[in-house]
Design a protein around this nucleic acid. Structure first.
Lengths: 66, 66
DNA sequence: ACTTTAAGTAAAGTTTACTTTACATTTGTG
DNA sequence: CACAAATGTAAAGTAAACTTTACTTAAAGT
């Protein structure tokens, strides 16, 4: 699974810390997500998508390996 | 967070076991998800949404408590 | 009524998400 | 350059997802 968080965050012009605060996680969690260190929960996916005003599928993508 | 899985599954007419197999998890995982026993990963959310031919947001819903 | 299939549930174990703390590196700005 | 802000990264700990096994209950068909 891949994601667009870094790009969407750049579009919105907010820092990892700001995004983290908005969705109530640690900054390291955002950083690790952007680095594809793990698969976030659906709760976070929904919150992030809402934050960016886009559907989950516009931010998180299944890959062939999934 | 709530979800619609049981309803979507009824619409499609498939069993918990069949859905489980399609997205490569155990039947108990599907059962527990339907019973809101835990928050599934985004990977599963994407696969389930794809299986039902609907966006993630049509199947998983944020609540005020989230 | 009997049998089969689907669903509910539970306990123990493994894996992984996520936090906290802490430090290093990069990037932007005066 | 100097300083601050943002990002990268890592290790140790906690919480939670997910599996496996197994037993029970419900529903549906013969």
């Amino acid at each position: 699974m891949k994601n667009n968080i870094k790009v969407e965050r750049a579009i919105k012009g907010i820092t990892q810390e700001e995004l983290a605060t908005k969705i109530s996680v640690s900054r390291q969690t955002i950083n690790a997500m952007e680095a594809n260190k793990y698969v976030p929960s659906t709760l976070l996916a929904l919150k992030i998508a809402r934050e960016f005003g886009k559907p989950v599928e516009a931010i998180f993508f299944l890959e062939d390996s999934d």
